[in-house]
Design a protein around this nucleic acid. Structure first.
Length: 254
DNA sequence: ATGGCGGCTCGCAGCCGA
């Protein structure tokens, strides 16, 4: 089983890249984030023509997540139960072949003294609380998405200011609490090149200079860990014309 | 590295992302 995650930064703009990537990579499930379109504007027909089902939790302008798959999604859930008043569309979960797969777009947080950072930490707490129950219901589980957290110093270019957004101690502690629920960072189950990033700023030639962060992750439950055979960051899409600023991350399960 | 890019919007400037 092949599961991937990709923050596309506007599905409308990136649809040609996504269709090409799906055709070439043939994943079982692709978790998308930052659709920036509502459910009515979601390009379901174009995807269906290529043979892909979609479970969508869309939002205009910001956020928006989806699960694309060859098999139809089962037991679809949108949003975090603990954030029922939150209008931001950041999570969708469904079951595929007995594996629970979550596509999540974690809040950015902007800066540690921002209201958006408080929201990020609240969201992380709600995720942790829900995930504990979700893991009990679904031992075979993958939490995939744009976490907006670089979990260790090896996951951020040295130029990223220590202690700031994406690398701060409270964010990393929240990430560690997710692992404590019985999850593994699939990327780190395998030997990887140094300076492996999943996001590069559009500005200042960051991709060409390989200045970035590893903030897109696939966390696998303990029950799935023995099945993991590979996890890689697929850089070439970041080099396309008019790319997303994120690259896909791909997990292979035996 | 703090801006520079690129997406969005009852748009033509400002917000947001990371």
């Amino acid at each position: 089983m092949k599961i991937a995650t990709w923050n596309v930064n506007s599905l409308k703009v990136r649809l040609p890249h996504v269709l090409d990537w799906l055709a070439a990579q043939q994943p079982d499930v692709l978790c998308l984030q930052e659709l920036k379109c509502d459910n009515a504007a979601f390009p379901a027909a174009e995807l269906a023509s290529a043979g892909w089902h979609a479970a969508v939790n869309g939002q205009k302008t910001y956020n928006g997540v989806a699960l694309l798959s060859r098999q139809r999604a089962e037991d679809v859930q949108a949003d975090l139960p603990g954030m029922s008043d939150d209008p931001q569309k950041r999570l969708i979960a469904a079951t595929f072949g007995g594996v629970r797969i979550i596509s999540a777009y974690f809040p950015n947080g902007q800066a540690l003294d921002s209201d958006k950072f408080a929201y990020k930490m609240d969201w992380l707490k709600a995720l942790e609380d829900w995930l504990r129950a979700e893991l009990a219901r679904h031992p075979r589980l993958v939490l995939a998405g744009d976490f907006n957290i670089a979990p260790t110093d090896a996951d951020a270019h040295e130029s990223w200011p220590p202690g700031t957004i994406h690398v701060s101690a409270p964010e990393r502690a929240a990430f560690a609490r997710l692992l404590d629920l019985g999850l593994q960072d699939a990327f780190r189950l395998f030997a990887q090149p140094e300076k492996s990033w999943s996001w590069w700023d559009y500005r200042m030639g960051a991709f060409r200079r390989n200045i970035g962060l590893r903030i897109d992750h696939l966390l696998v439950s303990d029950a799935l860990r023995p099945s993991c055979t590979a996890c890689t960051i697929d850089r070439p899409p970041r080099a396309l014309e008019r790319p997303s600023d994120h690259a896909p991350v791909v997990l292979e399960l035996a």
